[in-house]
Amino acid sequence: MKPAPFKYIAASSLDHALSLKAEYGDDARFLAGGQSLIPAMNFRLSRPSVLIDINRLSDLAGVDWPEGNDIRVGALTRYRNLERNRDFLAACPLFADALPHIAHPQIRNRGTIGGNLSHADPASELPALAVAMQARMRIKSSAREREVVAAQFFQGLLTTDIEADEMLVGVTFPPLAPRTGTSFMEVARRRGDFALAGVAAMVTLDQEGRCAAVRLALCGVGETPVDASQAVSALVGERCTGAAIDDVIAGVQEVIEPAGNVHASPDYQRHIAGVLAKRALMTAHRRTGHDA
């Protein structure tokens, strides 16, 4: 389990990294945390001919609040840094729920947000969070810079909207509306394993305590993270009671397409997706601070 040969280039700046990517295209991979890429290379499932190491691009790491209340996270920000960033966790509480489910401490010490989202593993937690939070992905090449909303960024199994000469340089999370509660839950065989199903829920109440907006995204139950917000939209305008939630769960179970794997049958995945959707919506609602 040793990687096949490749050429290694440590990029000295973002421009350098992007020019290298423009030069080598799909033959090159960016090396960020490497916590998914290096295992795949060790199994020789991935054999890039060029690795562009971006770990020295410290400008790409970190969280900032540039304008308004948007939260910008650089692609090279490691899970570790988010776990220890109280301001960030307060602003994006879904991360407080989800980060402990992401692999193990050593992986979180090294793995990066940009690497995770670019890898686009549908069983991974962050893509679902990005979809639930309607994050905007900031993508750059030598020639251009653009933003794509999360729902359009994830295009298929391990496939994103990123072109061969581009890099995901950061992700922008819009701030939570007032009276919003969130919850992320998942079922995995062991803590740290990829989710058999995971649910990110966001519930926003109006002044009267009725549901003003609801967002729901799932991981592990399709080829991409699944945006099930439409399926639960009947809650909008209603009081978010257990009975009201029960009425929309079947709709959630319909929009997902779990494939099953060695750990779970598709029916079990569909079943727990419903269970988790209900629990996450209830918890998110409770966390709005509004007693139902």
Partner: peptide, 27 residues
């Protein structure tokens, strides 16, 4: 394991625990 699961290869990189099987020496 050389795929980042077993943890036997964990070392400290600038004081932080990392899998040495998931890093290149050059890094």
């Amino acid at each position: 394991c050389e795929h980042g699961v077993c943890g036997a290869c964990t070392v400290l990189l600038d004081g932080i625990a990392v899998r040495s099987c998931l890093m290149l020496a050059v890094q």
